[in-house]
Measured scan of single mutants.
Amino acid sequence: MEVRTIKVFTTVDNINLHTQVVDMSMTYGQQFGPTYLDGADVTKIKPHNSHEGKTFYVLPNDDTLRVEAFEYYHTTDPSFLGRYMSALNHTKKWKYPQVNGLTSIKWADNNCYLATALLTLQQIELKFNPPALQDAYYRARAGEAANFCALILAYCNKTVGELGDVRETMSYLFQHANLDSCKRVLNVVCKTCGQQQTTLKGVEAVMYMGTLSYEQFKKGVQIPCTCGKQATKYLVQQESPFVMMSAPPAQYELKHGTFTCASEYTGNYQCGHYKHITSKETLYCIDGALLTKSSEYKGPITDVFYKENSYTTTIK
């Protein structure tokens, strides 16, 4: 009895394709271990004539594949690729409408935090270190965002349907971005203890939790000093293409032309909904596939993004 075979390709990165001759009487799992086709788990399936010449994702289970996976995804987590594939199996079914010149995501599976993050990423200057993220990001900007969303979920250790947080998501993504040249110098002034300067680099240099107003941050924000008295913390120097200011959701007025974009969060910790506000020729609110415009805006804002380049204080 002759062994019926077909020729397929296996890959971990969709760049390096490895030619395989597979036995049609055995499952993919018996031949390769966990195997995925377009995100779908085909591990328990036997090869079919229609699979001839198709590319299958496999887990990096030998040295060659491990090197290829690390170079593309910059992670050695053995569960990463499987999590990416199972997320992709959902995100490829989502709709990605162009809204006001940006790629958004039609609401499904509690994905409003991903839509808000995706919209924000198209408006701030950011370059990702893992080629996987950078490639998928370019495709997302062009309207094909399924891979990018699935990668975000995998890097953030999230599953489809789980509630997510924009600030946490951005923080994970910033860790995989090139923020080497970003720098922030802060000064804390206390009447009792004097003053202390701190220099922050990388992710810490672009994120701040405690106030939404970048102007206020430049002037000074009140913080408790270690001595128990009130101290003032203010920005001395900022070198970065953008800054992200966050605070627990509270009524906040966004003035046209003073910011790049913002995240609105309605609801409580267990259950809520994100919308995205962007400042173009007027203010726009993007909620999944829905767009509304207004000249002014007041609502429960939790993150505001500002364009920056270089700032030095005039406070002496």
Rank of each mutant, 00 (worst) to 15 (best):
Asn129Arg: 14
Tyr73Phe: 12
Cys225Pro: 00
Pro241Lys: 10
Gln222Asp: 00
Pro47Ser: 03
Gln230Tyr: 13
Pro47Thr: 03
Gly194Trp: 02
Tyr72Asp: 07
Asp41Leu: 09
Gly161Arg: 00
Thr75Lys: 10
Asn100Met: 10
His74Leu: 06
Lys280Phe: 09
Phe32Gly: 06
Ala154Leu: 04
Tyr297Glu: 02
Ser25Gly: 15
Gly299Lys: 00
Ala262Gln: 05
Asp165Ala: 14
Tyr138Leu: 14
Ala250His: 15
Thr258Tyr: 08
Ile124Asn: 04
Tyr208Gln: 08
Cys271His: 13
Tyr214Cys: 00
Glu52Asn: 10
Ala136Ile: 03
Thr198His: 10
Glu68Ile: 04
Lys92Ile: 10
Tyr138Phe: 10
Gln195Gly: 06
Lys93Arg: 13
Phe305Ile: 12
Val160Asn: 00
Thr64Ile: 08
Leu81Cys: 05
Asn16Phe: 03
Lys95Met: 08
Ser181Lys: 10
Asn49Met: 14
Phe259Ile: 05
Cys271Val: 09
Met209Asp: 01
Phe148Ala: 06
His51Thr: 02
Thr260Pro: 00
Lys95Leu: 13
Asp62Asn: 14
Ala142Gln: 14
Phe9Ser: 12
Leu59Asp: 14
Val8Arg: 03
Glu253Arg: 07
His276Cys: 01
Leu283Asp: 01
Asn14Pro: 06
Ser246Glu: 05
His90Asn: 06
Asp63Met: 09
Cys271Leu: 13
Ser263Cys: 09
Val12Leu: 09
Cys182Glu: 13
Asp303Cys: 09
Gln122Glu: 01
Asp287Ser: 02
Gly210Ser: 00
Glu204Trp: 06
Asn268Ala: 08
Thr292Glu: 09
Gly101Pro: 04
Tyr284Ala: 09
Val304Glu: 00
Asp23Glu: 12
Gln196Val: 10
Glu253Phe: 04
Glu204Cys: 01
Ser263Val: 13
Val160Gln: 07
His74Val: 02
Trp107Leu: 05
Ala146Leu: 02
Thr35Ala: 01
Asn187Ser: 10
Gln175Val: 05
Asp41Trp: 04
Thr198Lys: 14
Tyr96Gln: 03
Ala231Gly: 03
Gln270Asp: 15
Glu281Phe: 02
Phe80Met: 05
Thr120Ser: 12
Leu88Thr: 06
Gly143Thr: 03
Glu308Met: 06
Asp287Phe: 02
Ala140Asp: 09
Ser213Thr: 06
Pro131Gly: 00
Cys225Tyr: 01
Leu17Arg: 11
Asn16Thr: 13
Glu296Lys: 09
Asp38Thr: 07
Ser310Ile: 14
Glu296Phe: 14
His256Thr: 08
Leu290Trp: 10
Gln30Gly: 13
Thr75Arg: 03
Asp77Tyr: 03
Cys227Gly: 00
Tyr28Trp: 13
Lys233Pro: 01
Thr11Leu: 04
Ala140Trp: 14
Lys280Ser: 12
Ala150Arg: 05
Ile277Trp: 15
Val236Leu: 07
His276Ile: 03
Met207Ile: 05
Leu163Ile: 08
Cys225Met: 03
Tyr137Arg: 03
Gly143Trp: 01
Ile223Pro: 04
Val58Asp: 06
Gln30Arg: 14
Glu239Arg: 11
Pro248Lys: 03
Thr91Ser: 02
Lys7Glu: 14
Gly164Asp: 05
Leu114Tyr: 06
Tyr311Ile: 06
Asn61Cys: 14
Met170Glu: 01
Phe217Ile: 14
Asn110Glu: 05
Ala154Met: 04
Arg141Tyr: 04
Ser240Met: 00
Gln30Ile: 12
Cys193Gly: 02
Cys225Asn: 07
Gly33Tyr: 05
Tyr113Pro: 05
Lys44Ala: 15
Glu168Arg: 15
Glu162Asp: 14
Gly82Ser: 14
Thr43Glu: 11
Val166Gly: 00
Phe242Asp: 01
Gln237Arg: 12
Val166Asn: 07
Thr302Val: 10
Leu163Trp: 04
Lys127Met: 10
Ile45Pro: 10
Thr260Ala: 09
Leu88Phe: 05
Tyr172Ser: 13
Cys182Leu: 04
Ile6Arg: 11
Glu144Trp: 05
Ile105Trp: 03
Leu151Asn: 01
Glu308Gly: 06
Val166Arg: 00
His176Lys: 06
Cys285Tyr: 07
Gly33Cys: 06
Tyr274His: 05
Ala146Gln: 10
Gln196Phe: 11
Ser79Met: 11
Lys44His: 13
Tyr234Gly: 03
Phe80Pro: 06
Glu2Phe: 09
His51Glu: 11
Lys158Glu: 05
Arg66Cys: 09
Val58Asn: 07
Glu52Ile: 12
Ala231Asp: 01
Phe56Cys: 09
Thr211Glu: 12
Thr76Lys: 10
Gly39Thr: 12
Glu204Ile: 07
Met24Pro: 14
Glu162Pro: 00
Leu17Pro: 00
Trp107Asn: 07
Leu179Phe: 15
Val236Asn: 06
Ile15Lys: 09
Gln20Gly: 09
Tyr138Arg: 14
Phe32Asp: 06
Met85Leu: 14
Ala115Thr: 11
Cys112Tyr: 04
Glu308Lys: 06
His90Met: 12
Val12Ser: 04
Lys275Ser: 02
Met26Ile: 13
Gly39Lys: 05
Ile152Lys: 00
Thr159Arg: 13
Thr19Phe: 09
Tyr155Ala: 08
Lys307Asp: 10
Lys106Gln: 15
Lys93Ile: 13
Ala136Thr: 07
Val3Leu: 13
Lys293Leu: 07
Asp23Thr: 14
Val243Leu: 05
Glu71Asp: 10
Lys54Pro: 05
Thr199Leu: 06
Lys95Pro: 03
Cys271Ser: 15
Asn110Pro: 05
Tyr36Glu: 04
Leu81Trp: 13
Tyr297Ser: 03
Ile45Ala: 12
Lys183Pro: 05
Ala177Leu: 05
Leu59Glu: 13
Leu114Thr: 04
Cys261Asp: 02
Gly29Tyr: 12
Thr75Phe: 09
Asn147Met: 08
Thr64Tyr: 11
Ala145Met: 00
Leu173Cys: 05
Asp38Leu: 09
Ser181Val: 07
Val58Arg: 07
Tyr72Val: 05
Ile15Thr: 13
Leu114Arg: 04
Gly101Ser: 04
His18Val: 07
Lys158Tyr: 01
Thr10Cys: 10
Val160Arg: 00
Asn268Ile: 01
His256Val: 10
Gln238Glu: 06
Thr159Glu: 14
Gly220Ala: 02
Thr278Asn: 08
Tyr234His: 05
Tyr138Pro: 11
Gly194Asn: 00
Leu37Pro: 03
Thr103Asp: 08
Leu283Ala: 03
Val188Cys: 07
Gly82Ile: 11
Phe259Ser: 01
Leu212Asn: 06
Tyr36Val: 08
Glu281Ile: 10
Val185Phe: 01
